[in-house]
């Protein structure tokens, strides 16, 4: 499933959204540490109710960007706007409506999970029962009484998400929320994110689990060396990068015919000797008909949609070669 259930979500044609429709907006955001540029002129827009996946290799600047969004780090230049609120004193009020999990889940090791959330409830001026509700949301009620220092990585991660959910935030910023979760936990987390998005919560998440991002997110952005190199809707990305796989007794003959067809961008052979045809603008029958007419025997012909992982690697690879 992709999308939050709305037929035409407000972020569908993202770009120049009104403030009321924007959950996150950064303009020319830059940050360097000790002379090394970590984030460079980053422009980003995330719509309300959208689930946005923020991808990139280690050291690409994801966490630094998230820290700047949350006012945990001061940008060298550029601006950040969350939920229509700008920087300065007004930012504090806006951040009260933002739940976050940055880097590793950070809690007091001597308190149990429930008391950690209660301590945060007190800071946020929330009734303590919110802690129990947040534990329920991440399926941690049974372990809420255990000391945080005894938690497994997955349990710590769940508690981190529970803390982010306190106060029913309008925007969730989650850095690797699925880190350490078992497959059951990942499925639960995915369901929770979808429910929240359906209820109008915007979710901005970074993750290394690309299959998960592909299933969950409406749009993804890929950052490399501090620069955004791709932002696109997941459905569009997968459709655009689709190719065709062809198995035939005469691959050379088939390649000769296909190469001459308008709209065919590239041909390659995979490890099994099958032809891979990249022709994003063409339908299958537009490729198949000339082959059949020419008498080429076709054993298998199918459309292949790439995984997000393939797109990720291709994008970063192309970017590396290009730059």
């Amino acid at each position: 499933m992709v999308g939050s259930g709305n037929s035409v979500p407000p972020w569908a044609n993202i770009g120049g959204l009104a403030d009321s429709q924007t959950a996150i907006r950064t303009e020319q955001l830059s940050k360097s540490y000790r002379g090394k540029q970590v984030v460079s002129e980053l422009n980003l827009e995330v719509g309300r109710g959208e689930i946005f996946g923020f991808l990139g290799p280690n050291g690409a600047g994801k966490t630094t960007t998230i820290r700047m969004l949350l006012n945990l780090s001061t940008p060298d230049s550029g601006s950040v706007e969350l939920l229509g609120g700008g920087s300065g004193r007004g930012r504090a009020g806006v951040l009260a409506r933002v739940g976050s999990l940055v880097e590793t889940p950070a809690f007091y090791p001597y308190l149990c999970g429930r008391d950690n959330l209660r301590a945060l409830c007190l800071v946020l001026g929330l009734p303590p029962r919110q802690a129990d509700r947040a534990l329920e949301q991440v399926a941690m009620s049974a372990d809420g009484g255990r000391r945080f220092s005894t938690y497994s990585l997955g349990m710590k991660q769940r508690l981190g998400v529970a803390a982010a959910l306190l106060g029913d935030p309008e925007l969730l910023i989650l850095d690797e929320p699925a880190n350490g979760l078992d497959p059951f936990g990942i499925i639960q987390m995915r369901g929770l994110m979808r429910e929240l998005a359906a209820a109008g919560v915007s979710v901005f998440l970074s993750s290394h689990i690309l299959a998960e991002v592909g299933q969950l997110c409406d749009r993804v952005g890929i950052i490399r060396e501090g620069r955004m190199v791709l932002v696109e809707r997941v459905t569009e990305l997968l459709r655009r990068d689709a190719s065709f796989v062809l198995e035939t007794d005469d691959p050379e003959g088939a390649a000769r015919i296909l190469r001459d067809l308008p709209g065919v961008l590239a041909l390659s052979r995979d490890e099994l000797g099958r032809l891979r045809v990249e022709a994003p603008g063409l339908q299958g029958d537009q490729l198949l008909r000339p082959l059949v007419t020419a008498g080429v025997s076709v054993q298998e012909f199918r459309r292949h949609e790439p995984t997000l992982e393939e797109i990720f690697l291709r994008t970063l690879g192309a970017n590396a070669q290009g730059g």
């Binding site: 504090a92 009260a96 940055v102 880097e103 950070a106 809690f107 007091y108 945060l120 800071v123």
Partner: peptide
């Protein structure tokens, strides 16, 4: 010190507390 070593400080600061 535990606010620094555990990282719990950033949870509070991330909620806009001065």
């Amino acid at each position: 010190g535990v606010d620094f070593s555990s990282g719990a400080l950033r949870v509070v600061l991330g909620r806009g507390v001065a």
